[in-house]
Computed example of a mutant assay.
Amino acid sequence: MFIRAYLRASTSEQDASRAKSALDVFAAEHGLRIAARYVENESGAKLHRPELFRLLSDCEPGDVLLVEQVDRLSRLTSPDWIKLRNLIDAKQVRVVALDLPTSWILTAPTDEFTGRMFAAVNAMMLDVLAAVARKDYEDRRRRQAEGTAKAKAAGLYKGRPENKTRNAAISSLLRDGRSWRDIMDATGCSRTLLAKIARDRRRQAEADAAMSDVHP
């Protein structure tokens, strides 16, 4: 049985590895060793997250997917959560979350009856907490939209400030030919932001080339 820790934050400005110490403490207290960690900055409302799917691809039957909270795994809509759950079940992966005590027993050897009972309870609780996480996500999005609308109406909305230092570092790493995985690991940026900066670089390069043709 391998313990695979999944650490996620929603944006590149947040520290996805923040929960590492909490997961390490949990593992130590339960006599476990975390074999691999998968870290990414992506929204939990997105089904297709590269590191999460890499984790599941690496898993063998009986492996444990360890998260700090269920909302780190999912803020998905019901249809997308069902897809993810089906994949987890097909891989025979056990989800253990620090905020779901019923899941903790899944890290310890048990008899077949006890194991099946706790697996059933855990599956039900996972569904409940995934639904709660989705509702929390939708409520926060609604409140943010309302706040933004009020700020715009009052002429006070300026949007999120650009992290110019980080974006310049990303652009420099792209220019040096570094891989996207290396860049995301080095800067903590999301794949979405990296794709945007790469696209902007291409457009700028095309514009510079067009100007060179006009003014040789």
Rank of each mutant, 00 (worst) to 15 (best):
S172G: 12
D80S: 04
E29W: 02
R54S: 11
E206F: 05
A123I: 02
L7Q: 06
A169Y: 01
R140D: 09
L56Q: 02
S103C: 00
G115D: 12
Q14W: 08
D111S: 11
A28H: 09
A195Y: 12
F26K: 05
E68K: 07
T165A: 15
L73I: 00
T102C: 11
L194N: 01
D99H: 09
F118T: 02
Q92A: 12
K46L: 12
S10W: 07
L52M: 12
M125Y: 05
S103N: 02
A16G: 10
E162A: 14
N163W: 08
G62M: 05
M184Y: 06
A5P: 06
A195K: 14
R4P: 02
G44P: 08
A19N: 10
I34R: 02
K152Q: 13
E146F: 05
D182R: 11
A153L: 11
S190A: 03
F113R: 09
A186S: 15
A19I: 09
E13M: 08
K83I: 00
A153C: 06
R54C: 05
Q14C: 07
P79E: 00
T192Y: 14
L7E: 04
L98R: 12
P50I: 03
R160C: 05
F26N: 00
R75G: 01
R94Y: 11
V95P: 00
A205H: 10
N122P: 03
L66S: 00
T148Q: 11
G177T: 09
W81T: 02
L66A: 00
S212C: 06
E206T: 13
E162W: 02
P50W: 04
Q14K: 09
I183L: 06
T77P: 03
V70Q: 01
D71A: 04
T114W: 08
G155W: 07
E60G: 03
E13A: 15
V70G: 00
K20S: 13
K150T: 06
A97T: 03
L100S: 04
W180E: 13
K46R: 15
A133E: 07
A207G: 04
T187N: 03
D213S: 10
S10K: 12
K196P: 01
A154L: 15
R94N: 13
L87E: 02
R72K: 09
D71W: 04
D58W: 06
I170W: 01
S179A: 06
R37C: 12
G62I: 07
A130F: 07
R37T: 11
I105M: 09
F118N: 01
A22E: 15
A169E: 14
A27S: 12
E162D: 10
A119G: 14
R85F: 08
R191A: 14
L174H: 08
R134P: 05
W104G: 04
R203A: 15
V132T: 11
A119I: 03
R18W: 10
V128N: 02
I3V: 15
T107Y: 08
R37H: 11
A130G: 06
